[in-house]
């Protein structure tokens, strides 16, 4: 089963995204912020997909993205921002830092599924 990591400081959003990804056939790990995610990534199997909130305490999603993309072992991991940031400058900034896709909150299961289909990672 493909593995995904959900990073969001909201436990409700983590739960919703985990449920959606589980329904799409993923096994899901969760982290509360970027630093927590880096710690978990050092211990867990490499995920195929990481969903990243932007605004989080300790280490935000953009900082995590930059850090993770600097690590060669995550080159082939698909990273998608899922955030309340809706300005075009933020979308561009995330893409230039190595995000593969960008979802603006609020979202539905269809939105996540359609974005993953674009990336060739639809329902498993």
């Amino acid at each position: 089963m493909a593995l995904a990591l959900v990073i969001d400081d909201s436990s409700a959003t983590r739960m919703i995204l985990a449920r959606i990804l589980t329904e799409l056939g993923y096994s899901v790990e969760k982290a509360e912020n970027g630093a927590d995610a880096l710690h978990k990534l050092s211990k867990m199997a490499k995920p195929e997909l990481i969903l990243i909130d932007w605004n989080m305490p300790v280490m935000n999603g953009y900082e995590f993205l930059v850090k993770a993309r600097s690590m060669a072992q995550f080159d082939d991991v698909t990273m998608m921002m899922v955030t309340t940031e809706t300005e075009i400058e933020q979308v561009l900034k995330a893409l230039e830092a190595g995000a593969n896709e960008y979802v603006m909150k609020p979202f539905t299961k269809d939105v996540i599924d359609e974005k993953l289909s674009l990336l060739g990672l639809g329902a498993r």
């Binding site: 893409l95 995000a99 593969n100 060739g120």
Partner: peptide
Amino acid sequence: FRGTPVAPR
């Protein structure tokens, strides 16, 4: 886009 490893579809 620089740094976008996948988006073939």
